[in-house]
Amino acid sequence: MNSNWSRFNIASVILGFAFLYLPIAILVIYSFNESRLVTVWAGFSTKWYGELFRNQGLMDAAWVTARVGLVSATFATILGTTAALALTRYTRFHGRILFSGMVYAPLVMPEVITGLSLLLLFVSIDFGRGFWTVTLAHITFSMCFVAVVVQSRLVSFDRSLEEAAQDLGASPVTTFFQITLPVILPAVISGWMLAFTLSLDDLVIASFTSGPGATTLPMKIYSQVRLGVTPEINAVCTLLIAAVTIGVIITSVLNKSREVRRRRDEQAAYAGR
C-alpha cells in the first residue's frame, strides 16, 4: 500500500516536472544544433551563439531590454516600497481599503488592457513613444508587485525598532535609512528582482507602448519567430534561461547560508553563553 502510493507519487512528480521542463530542455538542446532546421538534429555545435552575437538587431534589442529592466525595476522599487510603507503605516486615512485594493488591481488586470490604456494615455498627451514610454509602462505595472512583496515584509516588521531609534534621538529620516530600510532590505531586493524579471519578460505591454528604436528582446524574438524559428532564437532564449537560473540560485544560496549561519550562531549563544 505504502510503496504503491510512493510509486504513484514518484510518477506524478516525474510527470509534472516533465510537463514543466521538457519544452525548455528541448529548446536548450536544439540551441546547440548544427542544422539550421530547428526540428532536425545534425550534431552538436555552438555556432549559433557566435551568430547571435553578430546579429545586431538582437543585440540592440537585448541592450534596450537591459536598460528598460534596470531603470524600471529601480523606480518601481522606490515607488512600490513607498506605497507599501504608506499602506501599512497610515492605517487611519479615509479610503485606505480602496487604495490597497487599487494597488492589487493591476496584478490581476489583463495585460492587454494595461497596455492599451497606457497607449491611449501616451497618445492623448502626445508623448513620443520609445524607450521612456516602455520604461514608464513597466514601472506602472511592476511597482504593484514590489508593493505587495514589501508590504508582506512590513506587516511583520516590529515597529518598536523604529520607536527605539527615535527614542535614542534619531529623526524619522535617519530612522528610515538606518533602521527600517536595512531591516527590510531583503524584501526590497526581492521586489527589485521581481520587477526586473517582469520587465525582462513582458511582451504585451511593451508591444503597445514601445516605439521606433525601442524594440525589446521579447518583441524582437516574437517578430523573428513569426518569420520562422531559427536556432539563433533558441540560443538567445537559452542565455535568458541561464541568466534567470543563475540569479535564482545565487539568491537562494545566499538566503540559505545566511539562515544556516544564523542557526549555528544562535545555538552557540544558547549553549556557550
Partner: peptide, 15 residues
Amino acid sequence: YRRPVNMMFQSYALF
C-alpha cells in the same frame, strides 16, 4: 527624538 527620556522596551527592540 527631542525628549531627554530613554526607554527600555518590553520587547527589547534591539536593532
